[in-house]
């Protein structure tokens, strides 16, 4: 019972949605499926929030190493949640100023927007920007011409990187742009690499992925792969 009903649900829902592709009367089902998912995922926030609270409250009550950081997590979590859910500081909606809950929760002027602007955005954007540093260290450490494959990888990266600065095109500017060797100008060369080699490689990867996804989906729908239900083998 514990395992059978879920398998029946998976198979039924899956079959219905696949059939919907070929039966016009059911064509709206796939859109519904996507909306339903987003709703369930939003409800699941209760579980995520519960997990977050449990982890950090435990650290706090155990006085674990670094419990003060758990206090920061919990504090910032609750403050953000409260100001967001209760729309604290939200200006009225100009079209309906008489309805107190009609204003936007993230309008400029709300406390929630302040948190977004001065906490959320700088923190996440800086984390994103850290990538530039890691790219440099990866280029230094990992791009070594150990074998022919590695030479291809770093050689291509080299050409493309060069082609994206003003220096690159300047190096090959002496090649006449209309002649037979125009293709060797750096900007043309990097365009050619992207256009031909990159397209070929990406196409094969994408075709392979599609096959992998089809086969994985099929196994899931047939109940062969049910690890997500805790039925690994």
């Amino acid at each position: 019972m514990k395992r059978t009903v879920p398998l029946i649900i998976t198979a039924t829902v899956g079959l219905l949605l696949i059939v919907a592709n070929f039966v016009p009367a059911l064509s709206e089902l796939s859109e519904d499926g996507t909306t339903f998912f987003s709703i369930i995922a939003a409800i699941a926030f209760v579980l995520g929030g519960g997990s977050l609270l449990k982890v950090h409250l435990k650290k706090l009550s155990d006085r674990d190493r670094g419990w003060a950081y758990s206090l920061i997590v919990l504090g910032s979590f609750f403050v953000t949640l409260v100001v967001g859910l209760f729309k604290i500081g939200a200006p009225p909606n100009p079209a309906y100023p008489d309805k107190p809950w009609a204003g936007g929760y993230n309008e400029p002027g709300t406390f929630f927007n302040w948190i977004y602007e001065y906490l959320f955005y700088p923190l996440t954007a800086t984390m994103f920007a850290m990538l530039a540093f890691y790219i440099a260290s990866a280029a230094f450490r990992a791009f070594r011409a150990k074998n022919f494959e590695a030479i291809l990888l770093l050689g291509t990266a080299f050409i493309i990187l060069l082609g994206q600065t003003a220096a690159g095109p300047a190096l090959t500017n002496w090649i006449p742009p209309d002649g037979p060797f125009a293709g060797l100008r750096l900007e043309e060369l990097s365009a050619y690499v992207m256009d031909v080699f990159n397209t070929a490689g990406s196409r094969a990867i994408v075709i392979g992925i599609a096959l992998g996804i089809a086969s994985t989906s099929l196994k899931i729908l047939m109940g062969l792969d049910r690890s997500y239900l805790g039925g690994g083998n």
């Binding site: 939003a42 504090g75 910032s76 979590f77 967001g84 929630f112 906490l119 959320f120 923190l123 984390m127």
Partner: peptide, 15 residues
Amino acid sequence: SLVVGVSAAYWMVVG
């Protein structure tokens, strides 16, 4: 810790 707390709550509010 700040980014974890703020962003978890942020997406819950948006949700």
